[in-house]
Design a protein around this nucleic acid. Structure first.
Lengths: 145, 145
DNA sequence: ATTCATGCAAATCGTTTGCAACCCA
DNA sequence: TGGGTTGCAAACGATTTGCATGAAT
């Protein structure tokens, strides 16, 4: 598939070697678009398909995929690192809504941070490349209980 | 001091007992206003003053102080939970700028999220109570290297 | 042939927990 | 008194590391 060739190329560009383990990890993450799998969960899914893959390899692969722009880490406050597929079209990652009542996590595609990012640059001289935004509150379903 | 009496009252209201350990932890955090001490660092500072305080107590106290509104946790991506003094006047906590070059952390007092918070409510029915915002990029000093 | 990547197991490290002793209310 | 709190040490769990083997270039 096209994706695979792209992965090979990106790996090559950064001086990384092309291995079946790296392809396997990317496959799993791509097949779970829209989810926030933890490193452990990714490991277990990879393991189902390639039983001879070790945990360490998965833990070493994820940051590589992040560097290549395939995934990014999210912290959903449950004590582990989770990863999401990075959509190509998006420059910035999206925001997350964390419901304090039911724990549900909702994605917000709207960015809307341009104003504050401009202000941050003019006031602090800080050039923003990316952001992580989490909102805490109560989701629609829980509001009526 | 006034603060101490206030702590006692808040603890009492929540059904917690007033102990010298809890006062000691709050003292340390208040004396380090503007810093982002890790739980471990807070423990060490408390320990200097009260050598008989255990780690577990500090780890159990910090979430209590957070519940009372004295502090809040920040994740500066270095593998540990850090705490900041919550300023009374502020409704929301402030944002953080993380320089990818020198690692410096800068605070941004401006909130400027009203627009997006309104939009999130009207679009998702999600009632926002608080937020955590981190910006990644390059600070002024590093921009010229 | 080199160099980097892997699997395994042991090691790390921040944080949590069980429990008997303790102390505040 | 009685139940929340504490200190200690052991337990935990996610992640990392050392190292010999194995695969990619």
């Amino acid at each position: 598939m096209i994706q695979k060739d792209e992965l090979s190329q990106l790996l090559r560009e950064k001086g990384y070697k092309i291995t079946k383990q790296r392809k396997a990890v990317l496959d799993i993450v791509m097949e779970h678009d829209g989810e926030h799998l933890s490193s452990q969960e990714i490991y277990e899914l990879v393991k189902q398909r390639c039983p001879d893959v070790g945990v360490a390899t998965v833990y070493r692969t994820l940051p590589v995929l992040e560097e290549l722009g395939y995934v990014y880490a999210v912290d959903l406050e449950d004590g582990c690192t989770r990863y999401e597929l990075q959509k190509k079209e998006q420059i910035h990652r999206h925001h997350h809504l964390l419901c304090e009542s039911c724990g549900k996590v909702t994605e917000v595609e709207d960015d809307l941070l341009d104003e504050i990012e401009d202000k941050v640059f003019s006031k602090y001289g800080f050039t923003i490349k990316d952001h992580k935004v989490k909102f805490y509150g109560v989701c629609k379903d829980c509001a009526f209980r």
